[in-house]
């Protein structure tokens, strides 16, 4: 092995060692995009940030306006609980339990309203219409990436 080859091999080892911890940190983590929106029969605009949600809801429910109140990405390890406070004071809790071939198994709870276990594929959008709020309804969108 020449000096150049040795240097290249050493550089490769250093790169692998440097990359190792990063991969380990990301392994087992589930990113979940959480969006809290408010739909209402009061005339108004469709929030540009909520156009995807509007496309999915428009054919199913009657409303005139849609506002995105909060949008956040939770980065959670398995069994770690992520929490987002809803505008009505209730907490939304999300806990990834298992990642499998058919997606991530997530326990979702809205205190006093709903508890559910969902098996969600990567990038699949889950919309929960749960909480009456002001003159409309809060709509929670969950989209996992793993």
């Amino acid at each position: 092995m020449t000096g150049l080859e040795r240097a290249l091999a050493a550089a490769a080892v250093v790169l692998l060692l440097a990359a190792g911890p990063t991969s380990a940190q990301n392994a087992g983590r589930v990113e979940i995009d959480v969006m809290i929106s408010h739909i209402s029969n009061r005339p108004g605009d469709i929030d540009p940030a909520g156009r995807k949600l509007d496309r999915e809801l428009r054919d199913q429910f009657r409303y005139e306006s849609l506002r995105v109140l909060e949008s956040r990405r939770l980065s959670l390890r398995l069994d770690e609980v992520g929490s987002v406070d809803l505008p009505n004071g209730k907490p939304l809790r999300v806990r990834p339990l298992q990642v499998g071939e058919r997606g991530v198994l997530v326990a979702v709870a809205i205190e006093g309203t709903l508890q559910t276990d969902l098996r969600i594929r990567n990038g699949h959008l889950v919309v929960i219409g749960a909480e009456p709020y002001e003159d409309g309804r809060l709509v929670i969108s969950l989209e996992p990436h793993f």
């Binding site: 429910f61 990038g123 699949h124 889950v126 929960i128 219409g129 749960a130």
Partner: peptide
């Protein structure tokens, strides 16, 4: 194969729309 594996909403009815590949809607 469904997204909703288990659900409890107390005494309230829930409508689950699992028609498409891209979205699932749960409506209390």
């Amino acid at each position: 194969t469904g997204v909703v594996r288990w659900i409890d909403s107390g005494d309230r009815n829930v409508m689950v729309l699992e028609g498409g590949e891209e979205v699932t809607i749960i409506w209390v």
